[in-house]
Design a protein around this nucleic acid. Structure first.
Lengths: 207, 207
DNA sequence: CATGTTTTTGTACTGAGTCCAATAATGCCA
DNA sequence: TGGCATTATTGGACTCAGTACAAAAACATG
């Protein structure tokens, strides 16, 4: 079926090789102590090639996270649209969190504590945070909703609920070995947010 | 009283001069289009002198915000410690928000929309966000609180409530002229969060 | 073998942020 | 008046992330 290779020069260095090289180096030296040149050299490719596969050094910290988070749009899409928004979002986030077992802790979260403030890391973290907020808000806003105030409430909810989930993830990562499933943490963190916004966002349906 | 100048060479170039120069240049060119060298040159100082007053270019965007936010610790400190934590935090955040009138919109918020993703900006934003979360969490954690789960809830609350406040500020900034007081926005945004966490965090006192 | 396509690479550049040593301006003290 | 300690400012050199662009390399097809 897909045995017809695409035209042009085939990829010699795969993403995975760079990820692996980076993972090694991040352990030997720190993240901050590792340059893109180092990573490329160990992977046996040019420094420029690195940028063919990643747009920034910080992307390497988020490969696991990005992969796990990629399912959020689809998960949101097939939610029961009759259910309260807050509940739908809660379900969706829990399902995404379920993707992260106890044995799979992403790079970014573990390194976060170690390296104080690498501003690249913070920037990349916020960028991802905002993407998730945007996705949730898009879903929340898809409901009729009434003008300005509801829009503010919707955005506040989207932001707060994702922020709570992130806080849960940090706590989960910090729990060290013996941490259970991420979903449990996320549940505790986001449920109060959903409960608090329920009467605000879902009051249309109750009337 | 304080007419005794400190020893050593007096400061020739003040912070304010750099801020002013930066403000001009950010309007003429964009933030991204302005280099630190530009700012220093217009202020009439060396490029290195810039770093005597600011640790990063992005600091310039946050001077107003930082000034307004500086009162949070004190505001939290003199809160009625008999009141529910969620209510205390809500009051404190509202009081901080009250510091931002309709005529005083900080740089960072207005430029945020304009310049897509300047990663420096995002990093500096998250750094500030985390500081506020830390302050709130410190206050929340000062109460007895019960071990692991409560700590998670406390951190989730701190994160979510500050996130909601930030969302409100963004909405407020985006409202353009005719936006009212920031406090009104913040109130709508954070009240549901506080309401949601009230039964979780304050249940000790109800028993 | 020529041609088009895609990947890889080299080279050069900008700009943020750091480091360090030299110099300038001040107050204080002899 | 002349050091002396202290602090601010400056210049220069450096590292590293990220960008731009053009040349070369590897493949498929005709």
């Amino acid at each position: 079926m897909s045995d017809s290779r695409p035209p042009g020069r085939p990829q010699a260095s795969s993403r995975a090789m760079l990820e692996e090289a980076a993972a090694e180096l991040f352990l030997e030296q720190t993240y901050a102590g590792t340059t893109i040149g180092d990573i490329a050299r160990r992977a046996g490719v040019s420094r420029n090639t690195f940028f063919n596969y990643f747009s920034a050094k910080s992307d390497l910290l988020w490969v696991d996270v990005d992969a796990g988070l990629a399912v959020l749009p689809a998960t949101l899409a097939d939610c029961d649209r009759a259910a309260p928004v807050t509940e739908s979002v809660r379900q969706a986030l829990l399902r995404v969190a379920a993707g992260f077992g106890p044995g799979r802790v992403p790079w970014a979260l573990t390194q976060y504590e170690l390296m104080a403030t690498s501003s690249e890391l913070e920037a990349s973290a916020l960028a991802r945070f905002l993407v998730q907020v945007g996705l949730v808000h898009e879903y929340v806003g898809a409901r009729p909703g009434q003008a300005a105030l509801a829009d503010l409430a919707g955005r506040a909810f989207s932001t707060a609920v994702v922020a709570a989930a992130v806080a849960a993830a940090r706590e989960w990562a910090a729990a060290g070995v013996g941490r259970g499933e991420l979903a449990g943490y996320v549940d505790v963190a986001i449920s109060p947010v959903c409960a608090g916004f329920h009467p605000v966002l879902d009051r249309v349906q109750d009337s």
